[in-house]
Simulated scan of single mutants.
Amino acid sequence: MSLNLSNYELLWPASLFVSEGECILRSTGSWQERAVWLLTEALAGTTAIADFQDLPDHTAPPSDPWATTDAGWGTRRAVMGRHDWFTELIARAHELRHAATPRPYWPQRRGNGPTRDGGSTRDARRDFARLISDFDGSGYLAEVFGEVCVDDRTQLPDASRVIERRLGIPALWPLAPETWDEDTFFGLIEVFHDLVSRPRNRRFHSWNSCGWHHSEFHNGPARILYRDKVNKLLREAGIEYELAAEGEDLGRLVAVTDDARSALVHRALNDSAPDVTTRVRHAVALFRGRDTTRESKRSAIVTLAGILEERRALLKDNLGKDEGALFEIANRYDLRHRKAEQRGDYDEAFLDWIFWWYLGTVELTNRLIASRDC
């Protein structure tokens, strides 16, 4: 019996759903409660949860071991159990559709709904506040802010003070997006990246309608999900920043680049030797930070030029005398040595071009080294 995936839609990145599902399958104890919580979070609607709970639990003894089946008396029914169902769902997660934004409704089609320009501009600040409210309601802030329990009179941390210690701005909790300037808004985006932590388990406390209590916190999965949701929010609002997914500036807002350059950054960060990786991380962070300047871009290029200088013999072996062109630019222009005769009258776009050229050459030398060592 194969699983029918047509009624399930993913709200999470598929890779995150798989990694969290595999953790559940490796766990002992109340794995089914963890599975239901993951399905609640990661899939749209309640269809998958209902399907899972309707299946038999083959780990438990049957209610009637002598029930009649097609195979005869006292034999087990050929029905998929919960563990097999969940295992197949995780294995085939990349086949699942992603939940899509509904097509425009009547007011939007008639031009009377929210737009991104004019007086009815969609407010990214309010969207972000709602997003944080959703994370809070799912227990993602319980590790740092605590949770109210009718049976526990322990004083909870002051959430405003927690944020203030990181951002230096008081009275930011509860969130009031109408009061934020741009720096506060962007600062909160970065702060909550570092605060969220996914609870892999929860229990319902029914006494006096207390509610859900969360446990087994892990910040890695939470931050992946947070970056995915916040970056989508920023894209939809037309804001040309995103939270970095790797590098020295992990979890900090950086300038958006195209997919090809994002892939180049990923390869350069992950395929370099450890001593080189540290410098590549630093160069990338200098170049793409939200507060980057002409001087920081120049420093990023100088860092990469230093790596290429160390690999000059390798480049010469593979490029011949043309390798000198790489260093002629760094030496003749006002980049590395800063001599009086060097040219400094160039547009900042030149710095962008030379950075990506040098980073691509670092990645090329990584591949040359790897092929030589094979």
Rank of each mutant, 00 (worst) to 15 (best):
D134L: 01
A129Y: 03
D84G: 04
G81P: 03
P102R: 03
R110L: 13
T87P: 03
G118M: 06
S120A: 13
A93K: 00
A91S: 12
A78F: 08
R125E: 05
Y105E: 15
R122A: 06
P104Q: 09
P114C: 03
P107Q: 12
I132F: 07
R97H: 12
T101C: 07
H98M: 04
R82D: 10
A99F: 02
R110N: 08
G111V: 14
R77G: 03
M80L: 07
T121C: 13
R109T: 10
R126K: 13
D117F: 09
A91C: 04
R103P: 03
H94Y: 04
R97N: 13
T87S: 15
G81Y: 03
T87C: 08
V79K: 11
E88L: 04
R103T: 03
R109F: 09
G118A: 06
D84H: 06
D134E: 06
F128R: 04
T101V: 13
R77L: 01
A99G: 06
A100F: 06
R77W: 02
R122V: 14
A100T: 11
E88P: 04
A124N: 03
A100V: 15
D127L: 07
A100I: 11
G81T: 07
R103W: 00
R116W: 13
H83I: 02
D127G: 14
V79L: 12
R92G: 05
R103V: 00
M80H: 05
R116Y: 12
E95Q: 12
R116L: 14
P104A: 10
R103M: 00
L96H: 07
L89A: 11
G113S: 07
R77I: 00
Q108F: 04
